[in-house]
């Protein structure tokens, strides 16, 4: 079973909670997906000093584990401050660390990310860093104290799906024992199945479900895709060849060319 900071997790699908048509649809999508971990953006949705009001209350009532995120933070200090606020509001040491470096692509600022990760790990946070597929950055995040990495496969919300499969493969090979969660860029269930087949431990989605025509149905579709991809990976996938291999043995047949 997958363990994230010593917490066993059976669902390999993590869901974001932003931009659903309504909280009722969000709640249904969460139930259908059977996800156990929800990310919640603190910055915009937090009522100043009011513990977030009814929306947070509804999310808490769903009984899932909360992974607060620092979405929208552009500097290390902003992200650290947000993480500390999240710890108070949600009573968890978990934080999905996002430090955005570029307004258009929402690409992480990996320098500020490593800096913020170091500060937060030293203060006892269990950090889930949203990073690129760069191996060296991954190494530095582990040095900083992270025990999970969350690489993108395409820009946040872009729905482009895996853009650099060789890089994702090499990331998996380079960090065989670190839980790797693909965060950002997945658009379709087949994208999720693909990265799970590559051996990634889990995926995190938001827009692909929230923005679908029927978010509840899409949540179920992703849940099955994640499970199928994981099973396929565990079952042992065939490597592609450049010539046909007959399903029926040919030795002993009348013609053999």
């Amino acid at each position: 079973m997958l363990e994230l900071y010593a917490t066993p997790v059976s669902s390999r699908l993590l869901l974001g909670t932003a931009r659903y048509p309504s909280p009722a649809i969000l709640a249904d999508a969460i139930i259908v997906s059977e996800t156990e971990i929800l990310t919640v953006s603190l910055r915009r949705e937090m009522a100043r000093g009011q513990q977030g009001g009814a929306f947070f209350g509804m999310i808490r009532d769903l009984g899932r584990r909360i992974l607060p995120n620092t979405a929208g933070c552009h500097t290390a200090s902003e992200a650290v401050l947000t993480a500390k606020m999240a710890r108070e509001v949600f009573g968890t040491n978990w934080v999905k660390l996002e430090v955005i470096g570029h307004q258009d692509t929402l690409q992480p600022d990996v320098f500020a990310l490593v800096e913020a990760a170091r500060i937060l790990c030293a203060e006892g946070f269990e950090v889930f860093p949203y990073t690129t597929d760069d191996l060296v950055v991954g190494e530095k995040l582990l040095d900083a104290g992270c025990r999970v990495l969350m690489p993108w496969c395409a820009p946040i919300g872009s729905a482009m799906g895996p853009q650099n499969i060789p890089a994702l493969r090499s990331m998996r090979a380079h960090f065989p024992d670190v839980p790797l969660i693909v965060d950002a860029g997945l658009g379709r269930p087949s994208h999720a199945a693909l990265v799970m087949e590559l051996g990634f431990d889990a995926v995190l989605l938001n827009t692909a479900v929230a923005g679908a025509g029927d978010p509840v149905q899409m949540a179920g579709a992703f849940a099955r895709a994640v499970e199928a991809g994981r099973s396929g990976y565990q079952a042992g996938l065939l490597e592609p060849r450049d010539m046909a291999v007959p399903s029926t043995p040919v030795i002993g047949k009348a013609v053999f060319s």
């Binding site: 915009r44 949705e45 009522a47 100043r48 977030g52 009001g53 929306f55 947070f56």
Partner: peptide, 8 residues
């Protein structure tokens, strides 16, 4: 549209 009761 922000999930918040802040009227500030």
């Amino acid at each position: 549209m922000i999930e918040s009761e802040d009227k500030g």
